[in-house]
């Protein structure tokens, strides 16, 4: 099963290496990993998608915690969270197919960000599944190039009445 782990780590050289080395060591394949700055310049945020059983994901989570540079780890797989992926897709077009492609872009609420005589670049943000299906329908026109950012995730805000989840740093129950 795909697990989505959100890690806050110290923004220091070598930290990405420490994190990825932990997955390599256990022979887990990382599906996607994104790193980016956060509201705090001393902290970077990683969203890691990994294919693992629940037990293995727990073990990975705890080992991530053990790294000195890891501030917080959360498995948001089953939590209410906004999960987004962004794709840039360069599709072959000709005068016959262009309007059809633009039509699909509309349906999927994508954006055309570049137009050339024989291709267009489309930008699409959304859930992984939506992007997957968009790519599927574009295949018949011929995809020249494709890039995806990989998943990023953020837990949804809670109403004040909800009991806050135990701060991740205290999640010691097993």
């Amino acid at each position: 099963m795909k697990h989505v782990l959100v890690c806050k780590v110290e923004n220091k050289p070598g930290v990405l290496n420490r994190i990825s080395s932990l997955f390599r060591r256990r022979l887990y394949n990382i599906d996607s990993l994104t790193v980016s700055p956060t509201e705090n310049p001393a902290v970077s945020r990683m969203t890691i998608v990994v294919d693992a059983t629940r037990t293995d994901a727990r073990i990975v989570e705890r080992n991530l915690y053990k790294l000195v540079n890891t501030i917080e780890v959360k498995d948001v797989t089953d939590l209410p969270a906004v999960k987004r992926d962004l794709a840039l897709i360069k599709v072959h077009t000709n005068p016959d197919t262009r309007s059809e492609v633009l039509n699909l872009v509309d349906i999927f609420r994508g954006k055309v960000v570049d137009v050339a005589p024989s291709s267009v670049i489309i930008e699409l943000t959304g859930e992984v599944k939506k992007i997957d299906s968009f790519i599927e329908v574009l295949k018949e026109f011929g995809i020249a190039e494709l890039v995806r950012t990989g998943l990023v995730a953020m837990e949804r805000g809670r109403s004040d009445k909800e009991v806050p989840a135990v701060a991740a740093a205290q999640q010691v129950n097993i």
């Binding site: 740093a169 205290q170 010691v172 129950n173």
Partner: peptide, 15 residues
Amino acid sequence: ELPGYRPRTIVPKAD
């Protein structure tokens, strides 16, 4: 103070 290094010893009462 290391933000990511807090050897923890919290024993939930139930356990």
